[in-house]
Write a protein that binds this DNA or RNA. Structure first.
Lengths: 210, 210
DNA sequence: TTTCTACTCATACTTAAGACTGATTTTTCC
DNA sequence: GGAAAAATCAGTCTTAAGTATGAGTAGAAA
């Protein structure tokens, strides 16, 4: 019997899952939680075989909860069950040590299969997630332009992206205009752009602002 | 007996809802669909009392489906049941003619209440949605700076936001550098910013790019 | 018909931006 | 302790950016 813990802030999803598992002969739900903190507490107490974890939750999100559970109980098998696939979710979840990643658009059968597979020590990932991970791995070697920026240059880029002029930057950082110009030139060169506007656009497109 | 149609691409949510409604004596589920198009077809055929509609779906999303259903059957009562509240979802849904707006974090009881309320001709909206609608109404009068831009100026702003220099804009639009400068000056003045970088930032912050 | 707006182009002027070169000081790292 | 990187400042030079002002044309609206 596979003992399951459901952590999801949508009552309807928990209800759907538990009513589905209730007709599966080899599975039973031993706990439900509506946020990551509650989920963590039940996980430590109940030691379920598999934890189904949502990511977006109040109080404590799924990533943090996953980390917290695994820190205390490293053998835990946690399957992320969430709505969307985006880089900001998938990679942190993987880094946190999740054993699986499923989309909520998955059918009941797929979810059951993922649970059985993970229970038998076989991690289960959505095809799209696998592709993302491979792509991410391929990008590991590639250099990201703005990683080359020094701390000071990053500060200056921030101010450029907020519409500051060179003189305003100089005043804000208590340095001379000349120094700001040097920084700006270096930034443009490192980001391979031609002017401060393109630098600001780069910052926005790469989510470096604020 | 309130006859319900569930339209949601998450099987688990449909399962949760239908298993909850199965224990409600005054409700029954007469149909389920996993995308907006399917939902539309069933809606027209079954004419349910209340339609619970998700927004994010493949094939046809909830907004489009809502419009399509109401165009053909204006008396339909459609309650949006979705994960997030954001302006790009709430207002189009309201414009489409939804009779209610609920969050998936709502409890089963709240959902049932919303259904009964809507069934009795009383639209039901999540508190946060109501607040958004009021705020939106209050902003109706306020002028939005970039609404003042002419079509040509909007084109120029687009190119500025893509990092084009004035000369490049001139070449792209087959006009002289002088004319571009005129446009740029007018844009800066209308957006109340000081230079093209701030204009590009304005465009990014107001989601005008691409 | 006339008025108004959008779009176009031009001249002249001012200045901030950016490139290039070179230099000093501090910090970091081996 | 010494090499390397980061941060600072300066001088010079070129040009793109932006302002101000004026003006012509076409089309829409009144």
């Amino acid at each position: 019997m596979i003992r399951l813990l459901l952590i999801d802030d949508h009552q309807m999803v928990r209800l759907g899952l538990s009513s589905y598992f209730s007709i599966q002969e080899d599975m039973t739900v031993v706990g439900e939680a509506e946020d990551g903190l509650q989920g963590y507490e039940i996980a430590i107490k109940e030691k379920p075989d598999i934890i189904l974890m949502d990511l977006v939750m109040e109080v404590m999100d799924g990533i943090e909860s996953t980390q917290k559970i695994l820190r205390e109980w490293p053998e835990a098998k946690i399957i992320i069950l969430t709505s969307f696939i985006d880089d900001e979710k998938v990679f942190p979840a993987m880094d946190a040590g999740a054993s699986g990643y499923l989309l909520k658009t998955s059918s009941a059968g797929e979810i059951a299969e993922a649970i059985r597979s993970t229970y038998n020590g076989d991690p289960y990932f959505e095809t799209e997630v696998t592709e993302k991970l491979i792509e991410h791995e391929n990008n590991k070697g590639k250099l990201i332009l703005h990683d080359e920026l020094t701390n000071r240059e990053k500060e200056v880029l921030q101010l450029i992206s907020q519409g500051y002029s060179n003189q305003e930057i100089a005043d804000a950082l208590f340095i001379t205009l000349k120094t700001v110009k040097t920084h700006v030139s270096n930034i443009l060169s490192k980001l391979q752009v031609e002017d401060r506007t393109q630098a600001a656009i780069y910052a926005f497109r790469h989510d470096l602002v604020e």
